[in-house]
Amino acid sequence: MAELQWLGVIRHGQSTGNVLAQQAEAGGLEEIAIPERDADVPLSELGREQAQAVGRWITGLTAEQRPQVAVVSPYLRTRQTAELALAGTGIQVVYDERLRDRELGVIDLLTTRGVEARLPLEAARRRRLGKFYYRPPGGESWADVLLRLRSLFGDVRAAYPGGRVVLFGHEAIVMLVRYLVEGLDEASLLALARATALGNCSISSWRCDGQRLRPERFNDVDHLHREGAPATRQEDVSADV
């Protein structure tokens, strides 16, 4: 199967859920008061500015550099990011539920403190199993998300051999795309996650050297600074909203 020429993945812009999650963690609360279901959390005003800045970065690319197709998570914050970033570009858009955010099950809407206080057995199980394999009841582990990403990658490579594809996804999706493309192991991925505060509307990308995809950029937010849209970085909390 022919390798892609270029692969990019863009995290959605700041969402209203990101703001509420950060406030809840900073305030020592147990619960994140997000009124919408996860799939319906919208962008904040800053998130919209960030998405428009991505759009200006895309339009500044040459025809040979610009993505040919965008594969987008169907969650509202991700759809809005893609719509604003791709407006007027003519880039083909495909929605695929395999790019949706990790499902958190019983720990959804709980802060780190909330999980410890309300679900101490789950907190202990998460510490014992580790982030990669821990699956909250009713939710997914990172390994579960990887199963759907492997399926997606196979389909994308088959549909667009030698093509330029950009994904619009979520915090966990960005980290796990890197795991897949670069062939990382569990320890390397977890070390990367501990060291990285992933930026909203950050761009990560890989370019084919003739044989395989090689890293080009990771968690890059320079385009936001150039376009006057403040970068926001999300520390790893229970919910990536």
Rank of each mutant, 00 (worst) to 15 (best):
R102D: 00
A159T: 15
V9I: 15
V72E: 01
L20C: 02
Q65T: 04
Q5A: 15
P137A: 13
E122S: 11
D185V: 12
T111E: 00
L86R: 00
W57C: 03
R102P: 00
V181C: 14
V41K: 11
D185M: 11
Q5N: 11
V72W: 01
A85F: 03
S204L: 07
T81N: 03
R214H: 10
R79F: 02
V9H: 08
S202D: 11
A159V: 12
G169I: 06
A231M: 09
E49R: 15
G183V: 14
S73Y: 05
G114Y: 06
Y134I: 02
L184F: 09
V145H: 07
L110C: 05
S141F: 10
G130E: 05
A39L: 13
N18E: 07
T111L: 02
D209R: 14
L189A: 07
L190D: 00
E36K: 09
V69I: 10
L129D: 08
D38N: 09
R113G: 06
Q22Y: 04
Q52M: 04
L76P: 02
E97G: 04
V166H: 03
R79P: 02
G138P: 14
G162P: 10
P67Y: 00
A159E: 14
L104F: 03
E83T: 02
A39Y: 04
A197S: 11
P74L: 09
R126T: 12
A24D: 09
T59K: 15
L61A: 09
G47Y: 10
R102N: 06
G60Y: 13
Q80K: 08
E97T: 01
T112N: 12
A187M: 09
I10L: 15
E116C: 08
L76S: 05
Q22W: 10
H12L: 11
D222W: 03
L149Y: 00
A33Y: 06
G130W: 07
L61V: 08
R79W: 01
G169V: 09
A51M: 02
R125K: 15
L198F: 13
E3C: 13
E25D: 15
T78Y: 09
F218D: 02
W57S: 04
R11W: 03
I173Q: 05
R150I: 02
L7E: 01
E31Y: 15
R178K: 12
L189P: 01
A24M: 13
R157S: 10
V165H: 10
G17T: 12
D236S: 10
A187E: 12
Q80T: 01
A2F: 12
G130Y: 08
L46K: 11
G17W: 04
G55R: 00
S73P: 13
G8C: 07
R126P: 13
L4I: 10
V69C: 06
R226W: 05
S238T: 11
A26Q: 14
D40I: 14
Q52T: 06
W206T: 11
S238Y: 06
A87T: 07
